[in-house]
Design a protein around this nucleic acid. Structure first.
Lengths: 238, 238
DNA sequence: TATCGATACTGTACCGTATCGATATGCTCC
DNA sequence: GGAGCATATCGATACGGTACAGTATCGATA
């Protein structure tokens, strides 16, 4: 699948080798998260893993091959919520994003991926694939809801998923501002509001859902500014 | 303001030094865009700039101080479209984003920023500030439209700007998928649809705008207009 | 006169390869 | 079923080569 990797296709070797391999893959990700591509050296990985440099080169022909394997091994498929309540399920998915972006080392790893993908084509391909897998649950929810007649998908569903997922990554990696706890609900409501079918709206949808034209007044207080330490004052120059 | 920079606040020195300083700042950004933080070394910058390493250390105490200055010097304020047509102005801004993300070296620089900001706090602060400036025109458009009674801002306007801007960065840096030419219009229409006031809708708003509940048959055909207003936007170097 | 480019220098870090002894695993043979 | 051996894998270490950090010096130049 991804060329350049020495052993991702082969069955895991038996015996003592497995342990060294796993230690090395974990160490590679730790280093990448801690120090980015600058800290990702074969020497440092070997040190961190308590392994010999020779062992690294026995398993992977190059640092980038090791990195691809490490990225691939790290991925955990996202859960697929399916309570039948589209809004709740989407919010659950986005809540998972928020947790991953705030309470785990994932964002530091992600930032390194973003940078690495820009410069190593094989990493860009893998990054694309991993992102595709992360998006699959939301895409499926939308397709199911459309099949039930709950929503009208008159545009590319991938764009809808973009609208849903993008704000969280943007806040974390570009705007560097805190993510309000209710942002998943706010985003889902905004996006769903443009897709509800007039004729059929299931009863299990919360009634205070802010439909356009007849919005619940609570959305305002729910999203009160909420700025933290990232709020900065004006700078002197332009 | 940004500690660690040797001279960003001081007036530019006169004489031959100015030229060397500018060459070095440009070279720093070129290297950062080309090879990320790995390629950003004082030696490489000096080579690229045709300068002496000693000259670099005369101006900046460290590599990160140089990087902060280079990032700061690169920024060009985004234009502020204001035709009075909220939709057209927002689309113009997002078109500028798309051009910067597809036709310039800006994204490679941006990816390096994203990674660097994760590991160097002073770069994160600067990145936050630069992003804030990039968002200012859209925020002002929304405030003006609200003042005109054209839209109802019942949530944090920053969240609206997030919804508008995020999909483009997400597509480019996370999903690694091409950005359709009509995505700005699609995004603007989706987001505006949830904010239009019922009572007052200015006449200069296109009538085929996909309102929720009475949607135009295709958001695609409905959003084909107003292109090529301003051709200048912020990007990296020249 | 201030700034610059060029050069040299020491110290450190990493690359990629080679070698060697240690050890866990699996198989054979009794 | 257990002792013993063969094999694969491992960690440690060393090596020459390259690159970069940061400082110092000196002559050139605007």
């Amino acid at each position: 699948m991804l060329q350049g990797t020495a052993s991702s296709n082969a069955p895991d070797p038996v015996g003592r080798g497995v342990h060294a391999r796993r230690r090395i893959l974990s160490a590679a990700l730790e280093l990448l998260a801690d120090a980015g591509m600058r800290g990702f050296t074969m020497e440092a990985v070997a040190r961190q893993a308590g392994a010999s440099k020779a062992t690294l080169y026995r398993h992977w022909p190059s640092a980038s091959a090791l990195l691809v394997d490490a990225m691939d091994a790290q991925f955990r498929p996202a859960p697929q919520p399916s309570t039948g309540d589209l809004r709740a399920d989407l919010v659950a998915i986005l809540d998972g994003f928020v947790r991953a972006l705030t309470d785990t080392p994932f964002p530091r790893l992600m930032a390194a991926f973003i940078d690495a993908a820009e410069r190593y084509p094989e990493l860009a391909d893998l990054h694309t694939e991993l992102t595709r897998r992360r998006r699959a649950p939301a895409l499926r929810l939308l397709a199911d809801a459309q099949a039930r007649g709950e929503i009208t998908l008159d545009i590319d569903p991938d764009v809808i998923v973009d609208l849903l997922a993008a704000p969280f990554f943007y806040r974390r990696f570009v705007a560097h501002r805190p993510i309000p706890a209710d942002l998943p609900a706010v985003v889902v409501d905004r996006v769903l509001a443009t897709m509800r079918t007039r004729d059929k709206t299931p009863d299990d949808i919360p009634k205070d859902l802010p439909r356009p034209q007849e919005r619940a007044p609570s959305a305002r207080t729910a999203t009160r500014r909420q700025r933290g330490r990232h709020d900065r004052q004006e700078r002197g120059r332009q």
